[in-house]
Simulated assay, not measured.
Amino acid sequence: MAVTVENAEDLTRAPGASVTPDTLPSDLDITDLVIGGGAEAKTRDTVQVQYQGIRVSDGGEFDSSWSRGGAPVEFPLGQVIDGFKLGISGMREGGRRILVVPPHQGYGDQGVPPVIPAGAHLVFVVDLVKVN
């Protein structure tokens, strides 16, 4: 699977991710675009992130903090989908990462209709803004 990201290293601008779904991973796939130098996120932490979410099936954006005004979103890392929890854990503040999330580490067989279909592979571009 190929993921390309406009503004890949410019964390002041929204990423523009696009996907070419050829071979889909069976487990979480993590690619660092920018390695941050700040605090490291752990599953017990609350984090602030900017993100863009893309459906692999049609390449469409289903959610983005950038599209909703650009303010970071805050959440306890231990209370989100496994793809986010495992994909953001170990990341450092100031970093940008691509997460390719298979269904069993995302929203599974139920999906989140009508936005995320059942059994969907998802791609997230995540910027770790702050670890609390």
Rank of each mutant, 00 (worst) to 15 (best):
A39D: 15
T31Y: 10
G38D: 04
G36Y: 01
Y51A: 15
L33Y: 07
G38N: 10
Y51C: 13
G36W: 07
Q48D: 15
D32I: 01
T31N: 10
T43I: 13
Q52C: 12
R55P: 01
R44L: 05
T31C: 08
G36E: 08
T31F: 07
D45W: 01
V56A: 06
T43Q: 15
T46Y: 04
R55M: 01
T43M: 11
G59P: 01
T43P: 11
A39L: 13
V49K: 06
D32F: 04
V49H: 01
V47Y: 05
Q52Y: 12
D32A: 13
D58F: 03
D32L: 09
G60K: 09
T43D: 13
T46V: 14
T43N: 11
I54D: 01
S57R: 11
V56P: 04
R55Q: 04
T31A: 11
A39P: 07
I54P: 01
D58P: 00
A39V: 14
D58T: 04
G53N: 10
V47H: 00
V49D: 03
I35A: 09
L33W: 08
R44E: 15
D32C: 08
A41F: 04
Q50A: 00
K42H: 12
V47Q: 01
A41C: 09
D58I: 01
T46I: 05
A39C: 09
K42F: 04
V56G: 11
Q50S: 07
